[in-house]
Design a protein around this nucleic acid. Structure first.
Length: 216
DNA sequence: ACCCAGGGTCATA
DNA sequence: TATGACCATGGG
């Protein structure tokens, strides 16, 4: 019940986030790859570049010249490797008949397929599962690990799958909508609270916070 | 000048 | 299994 009460605190503080900021499932997928270890603002610039250059579809990305594609991705960093990853992903996606060919697959097999793509790791796969395919998968990111270990709810040394299992077990009876909001709220909270740097993601989640001495 | 961001892969031990 | 190097831009 602790896991849900943290959610309730966040929701009360920030309200619904309506993630993922994108106009289509495909845009979620592209954004999920581009945001790897990268600030979202820079991803938006890269997404705009792709749209301006008229290469914003799976087939257009596949057919695009590597250097042209890489230049579009430049603001989001790692542009050479991300150009390859995007092409990789799109080749797989088109080969699977895109959304129509994938939407009826079971989450476990869809997840395995995503993880087999070079350039798609657990977090990217789970972003896609949750925010593009609307599956009840809990996304574990660095913020989640940090915040919940500081709250004393999980062991920070656990690996990705172990943490995901804990969250999905704790929140077993909740809806996919809650999973959607929860991850978005965690990301927002980490950004909002620590603008100053004191590393205190935890404070406003605790009673009588006062912003004192809670930081690790 | 330094640290970090909505990670992942690959080589090494 | 577990580190470390590498990828690279932009903001604070």
């Amino acid at each position: 019940m602790r896991f849900k009460s943290v959610y309730q605190s966040l929701f009360k503080k920030y309200g619904a986030q309506k993630w993922w900021p994108a106009d289509s499932p495909f845009e979620v997928m592209v954004g999920a790859i581009l945001t790897q270890n990268t600030a979202w603002l820079n991803v938006e610039r890269a997404l705009d570049n792709l749209k301006q250059a008229n290469v914003f579809s799976p087939q257009k990305i596949i057919d695009s010249n590597h250097d042209v594609l890489a230049q579009c991705l430049r603001p989001s960093g790692y542009f050479n490797i991300k150009a390859k990853r995007l092409k990789n992903y799109c080749e797989w996606y088109v080969g699977q008949n895109e959304y129509t060919g994938l939407k009826h697959k079971r989450s476990t097999s869809l997840r395995e397929m995503l993880l087999s793509i070079n350039g798609v790791g657990p977090e990217t796969a789970d972003d896609i599962l949750l925010y593009a395919f609307n599956r009840k998968i809990f996304v574990i990111d660095a913020y989640t690990r940090r915040i919940f270990s500081r709250l004393g709810l999980v062991d920070a040394s656990l690996d990705y799958e172990a943490l995901r299992t804990i969250f999905e077990t704790e929140l077993e009876s909740e809806t996919v909508v809650l999973f959607n909001e929860y991850h978005a709220l965690i990301v927002l909270h980490a950004k909002e609270v620590c603008k100053k740097k004191p590393v205190c993601e935890v404070c406003c989640l605790q009673r009588d916070c006062e912003q004192k001495g809670v930081a690790v």
